[in-house]
Write a protein that binds this DNA or RNA. Structure first.
Lengths: 259, 259
DNA sequence: AACCAATGGTTCACATAATGAACCATCAAG
DNA sequence: CTTGATGGTTCATTATGTGAACCATTGGTT
């Protein structure tokens, strides 16, 4: 692995539960040598990608990433395009909606909207990394990703986030086949207990899957009516978002008209 | 310079006018060897920091930066804190407002708001890199930055963006002194012709300057009334934003009450 | 068709730059 | 006044990055 990859892989250890990481922790998390981590973080800091907090001496992400993200949005305005779609979908379904995007071999939830209707709702945080096998979004992506990618994901050990999480690769493959048939994925309690999620894939201009659009509802609110209404609204919203970003569905993608 | 710094410095060549860069262009822009640029970009691509466009083979920023930016906002929610302040300041002044943040030795405009009142307004793009000597925001930052930083900035050649741009370091130093006295900076046509800008610095918890809050108006609309109203509203908004992000003004900062 | 000047991509001898075990300084707790 | 954390530093070893020169492809010119 090149030095640049090593340095950037250090950034993968930052997440919502670990916004600040000290040198020793980062050394342990990465498995690298302490001196190496120290120098790499020093270089990342010079470039403003991370910054060191005065008192604690721990590191957090730096201001430079904001500029890069703004330019990414200028290139591919998928987040801004998603906001309206998410808001309308939340209003239509009365539930929390979110958009997740593929980032290499990770799937991260990057934008969300809450419905005003209910006091209880599924809460979301942006930049949360989702599992492929335990979330509707992950399954929706796997259903339309390269077979080699699916194999790579299922070759890794499948973590059980809840007692309901499916960790048998065979079962997950069966779910993927079902997703390919319907064009929509479901997960009941696979990531968070008591959450029933639906998700549809989003495609880019090259017909490759970019991520997924999802509706997450408390299981208690999944009435028979919602079981019909949510997939319908979601499939329409997914097609709309794919369209708005100049994306094209693959030829065999079921648009839900036959569902 | 370390390899990591070299790789990350390639990213500085992306901006609003150059969202996609080919290998040869990037080689020229960076002054590095073509093979080096090729390998570095390959590594950045592996990590999702950049991605290569199929047809053109040129590079653009990748999806990974969105995740990093979301986490940065979770650590230091300066952009989300700024949005309300910007909107209210735009409404109060009737002009375009924007926030710029220091990113190492660069100042980038990262968030803005337009006023609904007028058909003509100063247009802004996020992630635009501002000059220190030719913008009110830049001068506001220099006025409260480390003296060594000011020296470094003024040691570089000062580019003239417009015929009105001040490029004499002596004159700029005089302007900085004035900024330190008043707590507010001005620039008339120093970056874009026909634009009169005011700016105030924003401070972090360690009393260091983080960036600047600015109001940009067409020179034609800078009436005597506005010349009083804009600085007043801007200084109040600047203090409010510094406060909202947990920042503290340095002890000698003029709050405008004596202006 | 032959030519030229671009482009992106690849090779390999060479030298620079990264590595990691061991080190020091500091701190807080026992 | 140990013990075990932490962040930070050193330096001999070697792995890694480098760049001149190369190839392949494309698109425009004569």
């Amino acid at each position: 692995m090149g030095t640049v990859s090593k340095a950037l892989s250090l950034l993968t250890h930052f997440n919502h539960g670990r916004l600040e990481i000290g040198l020793s922790d980062l050394t342990r998390l990465s498995g690298m040598n302490k001196a190496t981590v120290y120098r790499l973080m020093g270089e990342l800091q010079e470039q403003g990608v991370v910054e060191q907090i005065e008192e604690a001496r721990s590191y957090r992400l730096g201001p430079q990433v904001l500029r890069l993200a703004a330019l990414r949005e200028a290139s591919v305005p998928i987040l801004s395009a998603s906001r309206r779609v998410l808001r309308e979908l939340s209003e239509a379904t009365g539930e929390t909606t979110h958009l997740s995007l593929l980032q290499g071999d990770q799937l991260a939830s990057l934008s969300h909207a809450y419905a005003p209707q209910h006091a209880t709702k599924v809460m979301m945080e942006d930049a949360e990394v989702l599992t492929f096998h335990g979330t509707a979004s992950g399954l929706a992506v796997l259903g339309f990703a390269e077979p080699a990618f699916v194999d790579a994901v299922l070759a890794r050990p499948l973590e059980a986030r809840t007692p309901q999480t499916q960790t048998d690769p065979q079962v997950v493959r069966a779910q993927i086949t079902e997703v390919q048939r319907c064009g929509i994925a479901q997960s009941v309690g696979g990531f968070e207990a008591e959450v029933h999620s639906h998700a549809v894939p989003i495609f880019g201009p090259d017909r490759a899957v970019l991520g997924a659009l999802a509706v997450a509802a408390p299981t208690s609110r999944m009435s028979a009516a919602q079981r019909v209404a949510i997939p319908q609204a979601l499939q329409a919203a997914g097609l709309a978002l794919t369209h708005r970003i100049g994306g094209v569905c693959p030829p065999h993608f079921p648009t839900g008209l036959a569902a």
